[in-house]
Every structure is written in C-alpha cells, then in structure tokens.
Amino acid sequence: MSATITVETPLSPDMRAMVQELSDLLLSLTPAEACHHLTAEQMAGERTTVFVARVAGEIAACGALHRHDGGVAEVKRMYTRPAFQGQGLGAMILDRIIEEAKSEGVRQLVLETGWNYEAARKLYERRGFTLCGPVLDYPEHPESVFYSRPLMAETEI
C-alpha cells in the first residue's frame, strides 16, 4: 500500500462524504450530546488544516489540526475507513498533525475522544498523549475522555 498525505479542502465532494461518514459512525457509537463534530464548513476555516491520506486516489483516512487561542491546538476528525484500517494511516496523519503544530510553535495539543474508541486511544497514547481532565470548553461526560500532549518542551531542547 502506498499512501500519500496532503492538505486538502474539506469542501470537495469526496471529503464532504468522508466527513458525513465519520459523523454518522460516531453518532452510531456515542450519544449525540457526547459528539463534538466539526462540519465540513467549520473545517474549512482558517484555524483548521485538514490532512488526507489517499490510496490509489481514494480517500482512506483524515485528521485535522484545529487551532485555539493561547498556543493550544486540537486534534479533530481523525478517521480511517474500515477497508484501510490497520495499515498505519492514522499514525501517519497524527504524525503530520504533530509536526505541523510543532512547526507553528503550538505549546500543547489536546483532544476529546470516546471512551470506547480503543484503537484511537491506543494511537494517541503511543504518540505521547496522556489522559487529562476536560479540555477547552468541553463538558465532562461519561462517554468522553480527554488527552493532552505538551509540545513546547520538545521544541526548546
């Protein structure tokens, strides 16, 4: 499998379909009040960079870096389509998100995910994220878990 990862607009027809597919999946696994989606339109804003993995031209996975004030950025919309899972695409995208955040001087990456998304949680933990309390303006919810990873110490060494 040869994948390419590029920055793409979430407003293309195939990315809109991917974003909808992810939203539908999350809503089938998690109560609506614990789902914190960005729409394709929100992802198209200047605060967000969308990374897309394609295999043979087909969108296989995606993830986004969403910037907040105060040197904090958030990992959002991480998803690998079932046919492409287990091939390391999520890790490749997360690595690109981390690289981009570091290059911009982001001091801390945070994220919210579902307590039952075991593969995602393992990926985040392998990439140095640690469990923490609620981040940003997310409410505490029994279906949500939160992760944080400092970046500034790594770039100051």
Rank of each mutant, 00 (worst) to 15 (best):
M18C: 08
D95T: 12
Y124V: 05
C35N: 14
M92N: 06
I98G: 00
H68N: 01
G128N: 12
A101E: 00
E104W: 10
T130V: 11
R96Y: 07
L38E: 06
T30R: 07
R121F: 10
P150W: 06
P82F: 11
T4V: 05
A32G: 07
M15C: 11
K76G: 08
L38M: 13
S103K: 15
P150F: 05
A34G: 03
R81D: 05
L25H: 07
A120F: 08
S148Y: 10
S2K: 15
A32S: 15
A61S: 15
Q85M: 03
T9V: 08
P150Q: 06
E143R: 13
E74N: 04
E33Y: 01
M1G: 13
R47D: 10
H36E: 06
Y138W: 09
R67Q: 08
H141Q: 09
D69R: 05
L22C: 07
M92I: 06
G45F: 07
H36Y: 14
P13L: 13
P82R: 12
F84C: 04
M92H: 12
Y117R: 06
E41W: 03
L111I: 07
V106C: 04
V106N: 01
G63Q: 00
A83H: 12
I5F: 09
R149N: 09
W115T: 03
P13M: 11
F84V: 05
F129W: 10
G45R: 13
G90A: 09
Y117P: 00
A73F: 01
E104R: 15
A56F: 06
E154Q: 14
R81N: 06
E99I: 04
R121P: 05
Y117Q: 13
T6G: 08
R96M: 14
T39H: 06
S144D: 06
K122N: 13
M1F: 14
E112V: 03
G70L: 02
D14N: 06
S148D: 07
T49M: 03
A34L: 05
G57I: 10
D95K: 15
V50Y: 01
V52S: 00
Y147I: 05
Y117F: 15
T9Y: 09
T9E: 09
L27I: 00
V135L: 04
R96A: 14
Y138G: 04
A44Y: 02
I98C: 05
T4I: 04
S2N: 12
H66T: 11
A32M: 10
A32W: 11
V52N: 00
G70N: 04
V75H: 03
L22K: 09
P139K: 14
S28H: 01
S148W: 07
L65G: 02
R149C: 12
R67S: 08
G128I: 13
V145E: 06
T48R: 11
